[in-house]
Each structure stands twice: as structure tokens, then as C-alpha cells.
Simulated scan of single mutants.
Amino acid sequence: MVRAAPIPPPSPAPAAACNVLAAAASGVIGFIERQGGNAETVLNRAAIDISWLTDPTLPLDLAAYVQMMEEAATQTGNGNFGLWFGQQFQPQDLGLIGGVTLAAPTLVSALEALADLFPYHQQVTHTACRHAGGMVALEYRILDGAILARRQDAELTMGMFVNVLRYVFGPAWAPEEVHFEHPQPEQAQEHERAFRAPIHWGQRTNALIFKRPSEGIAMPGADLRAMDRLRGQLIQAARGSAGDVPLIRRVQAEIRSRLVDGPPYIEEVADALGLRRWTLQRCLADEGVSFSDLVEGVRHQLARLYVERTHVPLADIACLLGYSEISAFSRAFTRWYALPPRQFRAQAAARGFR
């Protein structure tokens, strides 16, 4: 009798500064194929081994995961890939963080657990559940300033979050508003159809805004013992860490989130990082950069990303980058790229950027 060869274990993922558990990619291969794409091509371009997706507790490099979603949108030709992948992504598919959320005793405690523990599921991430005036803002933002193109990730994560509430209230539930940090994409009407709510683009953070649920709304699968067990497993899977990146990349992330309100102040960024202004200045000086250098650098990088999205008005890009006038943005862009933004955009369109 011939015995079947044993299935080899997954090859270890390379060590990374920050990770996301593979549960975040549950079903992505099938979804890519259903969208007419080639999953193998997408994974190869993102430098992700397919074996790393076999165990939901395995760590994936966060930057590679985000790139995978951007590559999937490009390879399938579906610019709203992340939007629709997130809309079909149910909480029970989200691995340990999904299990913790579903086992919470009440919806309010489930949302608080989701916000508090999500950085163990996906490291170097800001999540918060803010309450004000009878409303809740469930916020999400990546804190690694080196991850630039991340629209697909933001849209799929907001879909994951909205499905936690739809798990309780049913598929017709809708938030009051949805906020995204990226500019308005093409076919933006699909977002209002998916979330059944007004969408606001170019915001400081990604967020669902909704009426505060009653404290007494129970989760259908409430199980405190399971919740505690899964919380421990989640923290263990993250090796007890919510991740870390170099200070410069954290500063870049905070600058990015504030540009929409105008040129950021170093005091605000230092406060967000839990530092005094002079401490932050000294740390940056030790790295050979100044705060103004980093502001310039973030604007420089985002300018190209946005200008290559040929549907985004240049006036909107100027606002997103903190310029009060489009002429100031045009002068800066020309200094960076030796071409005015309209000419650079025309060349990008010829190369096939959308």
C-alpha cells in the first residue's frame, strides 16, 4: 500500500518590523480569482508565499499585506477590490480578534475590545472607539509612514468593522458616516452603496461614525471564558507586542494625518508620540533630519502618489497636502519633479496610471 506523502508545514515568514496575522487575508485567493485575477501573480508581486496564508495565526509583513491588496486591485482591474473584499468579510473569518469580538458580553464591550486589541492583530496600527454627543467614532489608521499606498486596506478594514455591527443588527444596518484618509476614488458611488451612508474623503483618519448602541445589547455568542482565552492567544500570537517602527516613520505617519488641516506643528506631533517638543527635535537631529525636512518629504512622496491618480483634482491634492493655494503646491511639485503637476500627470496617464 502506497502512503501519501505528508503535507509539508508552511515555510516560516521572514521576520518583519510589524506584522498582521494571516487571518486578515482569509479568502483573498478565492476572491482574487472570482474578480478575474491571478492570485499567484498578486502574491508574487507582494513577496508573499502562499503557504503563509494557511494558518490564520501566522504573521505576515504588514507592508507586504497592504501591497498585496493594492496589487490585487491593479491585477484584477477592479479599483474597488478592497471595498468589496471587506464587505463580504465576516467577523468570524477574522481569526483571534474576530473571536474575541464575537465572544464579548455586549456590543459596546465588543467594540471596545476590537479597538483595544486590534493592534495585536495588526501591529503599528491606531484603533480607537471614541464617544461624543451620543455618537461613536470607530477609528483606524496605519502608523507606519513608510506605507504610502494603502487605500485598499483602509476600505476593506472599514468593511470588516461595519460587519461587526451588521452581525448584531442585520445586513441592512448602516453607519451615519464613513471617513477615509485617501482622496475620492473613481466609482465612488459604489462606496455609498456598500456602506449605505455618506462618505467623506481626505480625512485625518479612517472611521465609522454611528449612534452609540445601548449598553444592554448582548452579543449573540457571548462567552466571557472564551473571550479571555482568545485574548490571551491573540496577545501571544503577537508576542505580546503591538509592534514598533523607527521614530522617523512614526513622525511621518503623524505628519500625514495632519496635512489635511494645513502645515502640521511639531508640538502636536510630539504630543501624539508622548514626547516633549525638545525631545523630539533632539531625536530627529540625532538622525540627521529636522521636522521641516520630514514635512517636506511626506508632501513630496504623497504628491506623486496622488498626482498619478489622474481622476483626483489638483486643487484637492493641494488641500490634502496642506497647501492653502494650488499655486504653492504647483511650485513645490515642480521643484521636486522638474515638471509641473499637469505635465507630470499627462505622462502618468500615458503610462497607464489611473
Rank of each mutant, 00 (worst) to 15 (best):
Q75W: 01
Q75S: 11
L58Y: 13
A46F: 01
D153Y: 08
T205A: 11
Q122F: 00
A4S: 12
G221S: 14
A315Y: 06
E71R: 13
E176R: 15
V168P: 10
S109H: 11
E215I: 03
R225L: 07
A238E: 00
A39D: 04
R276F: 11
I32Y: 01
F333S: 01
H200A: 15
G82C: 04
V20A: 04
H179L: 15
V162W: 06
H126N: 11
A104N: 02
E186W: 10
M69F: 13
T54E: 13
H300N: 12
L60S: 10
E296M: 13
V20K: 03
G99W: 00
A137P: 00
S290W: 08
G86H: 02
V295W: 06
D153A: 11
A73Q: 12
T101Q: 07
L143W: 01
V269F: 03
E192L: 13
A149S: 10
A47L: 09
G202L: 06
Q187V: 10
P9E: 11
L156M: 15
T74K: 09
K211V: 07
E71N: 10
Q90Y: 10
I29V: 08
F31Y: 07
I7T: 12
P246K: 03
W84G: 03
V251M: 06
S11D: 14
T334D: 03
I7K: 12
I32N: 00
R277K: 13
V245R: 05
Q90I: 07
